[in-house]
Nucleic acid binder design. Structure first.
Lengths: 357, 357
DNA sequence: TTGTAAGCGTTATCAC
DNA sequence: GTGATAACGCTTACAA
């Protein structure tokens, strides 16, 4: 066994005690000074402050947390930071939490329920004061069980899960999809395709309802074959596959509603591959504004909402809950959606030359 | 003063003591069981385990941290999560840190040195075990001072700061820019514009060196007027402004190197606004691959590197440092860059019809 | 093999 | 107004 000569230089942290000794007072007094509480004689106060500065001492938050059994940290579990929606939500949450003296600890689930479960347990052991959560599968019993065992309040984003003492923040996907579909119907479209994620979470269901409602309002029947919804992840590959399939149908759609952040890339790629022109051959509406939607030609009409607001509202809700203690009832905050009209939609007649099929 | 009846139901946390009592053993034994250490009689062990399960007890990490003076948390300070580069870095760092039992706590600086300073102090009070950091301004003395006062090791990403016991991870921007510039020169370009961020950090400087070196190799003199570098943030607005300026010059460039994640959007917008065609009127190379670069038409040639790797390598470096203790010397990890050729570049003659100026 | 107790750094309660 | 001390929940010498 080798003994390093420098092995013993473990400089132990300076503590209240050091400050107290230097200032010639007791630890209690030092504590009262930093926490600006009680009456402390100005003379003593300044002596203590001088000592604090000269030793560069700040109270250990670990010890503070230990004492009042609260870490002043909030966990945020999301599926994937590479999705700019989640990145914005985290940014939104962080911006309000740090202002309130809380720290954000993050965890990616990568859409694994098992990861979600273990992160929840972990945050519990760390005595997180709260959790902001975008559950992958709203129905997963293991995750739900962990959640209800948890000792901290939870705010869900974009999910419709009711567990005790949890609130939720959602975007108004119903309204957004309703508007988008109405717009297409108004342009004269009757065969409108819907590509969207599955019905296993709030977002997919709300969009489906909006889509249906817009048809119903106009006395139209949605074409069921044109509804491409998957219980799995709605990624670019899914968008590509489904678009190709739709374009190759006879009785193919005259418009596509691609609702899901990652779909646009796949949809555009499939249109390119099949030489399908937008909006001449097909109209397109996507969700979640992006550089891509804005700068591709033609620019793509989108249903937009603020992911940042989803995160910041979730944080506000959680803080409110933390302040209110027990007299608090779960509530829901709805973030608005809007439709941004660009050049990717036209009437269905508008030059529908035979496709390259 | 109102007294809520439920005010007293502060269910105090179950502790080792509860488990010990239930199992009929001492707290030490319980601790030895959870930490799978020492010899514990199988009989006793199983009694303890049963008690743990029935009480649903897990050791409080707060107390553990308190005891061994380590929070098993690593801080990550970046400027802005809305920049997908930072999001990927965070994802990369988080993926290796959680695997090693550390938690990531995040902080946005929004490019404010003051925020950076206070986050460093905060992480110090929280007794973070380490910090991963993308400093906004490498030269800021306040931040540097906080950093050197800090009690934890630091790994810098994309910065060239040498403080004691810090390592760094950088992408090979010199090489990437060298290759890109060589490529343009090889196509026949002689008036190449460079739009890039300032020289106040490693990235800008490395790119500038690569740009210069490629010219030197070919015995060419860079056209200084065409170098648009700013000490401030290189955002889309900057890209737009500088592109317009470049396009309106006489002796205007035949190619633009837009090096900076946010520039592309502005450059493309400016080209649109001035009806400048790519690559017929001007060739373009950007940095950091994106959906936009890939799917806009023509697709844009880019210098690419993995931001995820920057983050994960930084985490590895930090973990290595944490494991190695004192016998560790600061080191640098270089992540490779590559150039992805797409359709945005052509020879300078290639149809340079008078621009729409 | 197991129990006991000190100690991690703070703050709040109680004397003085 | 200030000082001493218990307590937060855990781990680890050390004692038995």
């Amino acid at each position: 066994m080798s003994v390093t000569s420098s092995a013993k230089n473990k400089v132990s942290r300076t503590t209240v005690r050091d400050v107290a000794r230097l200032a010639g007072v007791s630890v209690g007094t030092v504590s009262r000074v930093v926490n600006r509480v009680d009456n402390v004689t100005p003379l003593i106060r300044s002596r203590v402050e001088a000592a604090m500065i000269s030793l560069n001492w700040k109270p250990s938050m670990l010890a503070q947390n230990m004492r009042d059994q609260s870490s002043r940290m909030v966990g945020f579990i999301f599926s994937d930071l590479d999705n700019p929606l989640f990145a914005s939500m985290v940014k939104g949450a962080e911006s309000v939490l740090t202002k309130a003296g809380y720290q954000l600890i993050v965890g990616s689930s990568n859409d694994s329920a098992e990861h979600e479960r273990s992160l929840i347990e972990l945050f519990g052991q760390r005595q997180a004061d709260g959790l902001i959560f975008t559950m992958t599968d709203e129905g997963n019993p293991d995750v739900l069980a962990s959640l209800s065992r948890a000792s901290f309040p939870v705010v869900m984003i974009e999910r419709e899960v009711t567990i005790p003492s949890s609130g939720k923040v959602v975007a108004d996907h119903y309204e957004g999809t309703l508007q988008a579909t109405r717009y297409l119907i108004g342009l004269g479209h009757r065969r409108i395709a819907l590509i969207t994620g599955g019905q296993n979470n709030f977002v997919g269901r709300a969009r489906m309802r909006g889509f249906m409602q817009a048809h119903r309002e106009h006395g139209l029947e949605p074409v069921l074959r044109l509804i491409r919804s998957d219980d799995r992840i709605a990624d670019a590959a899914f968008g590509y596959r489904e678009t190709q399939l739709l374009l190759s149908m006879n009785g193919r759609p005259t418009a596509i509603l691609a609702l899901g952040r990652k779909l646009l890339r796949g949809v555009l790629a499939a249109c390119r591959a099949t030489c399908t022109r937008i909006p001449e051959d097909i109209s397109l509406i996507a969700t979640n504004d992006s550089e891509l939607a804005e700068l591709v030609q033609p620019a793509v009409t989108v249903v937009r909402y603020s992911a940042f607001d989803l995160g910041s509202e979730a944080a506000h809700l959680l803080l409110h809950r933390l302040g209110a203690g027990n007299d608090w009832s779960p509530s829901t905050i709805v973030v608005p959606t809007e439709i941004v009209i660009r050049g990717s939609c036209a009437g269905p007649g508008q030059g529908s030359k035979g496709s390259a099929l």
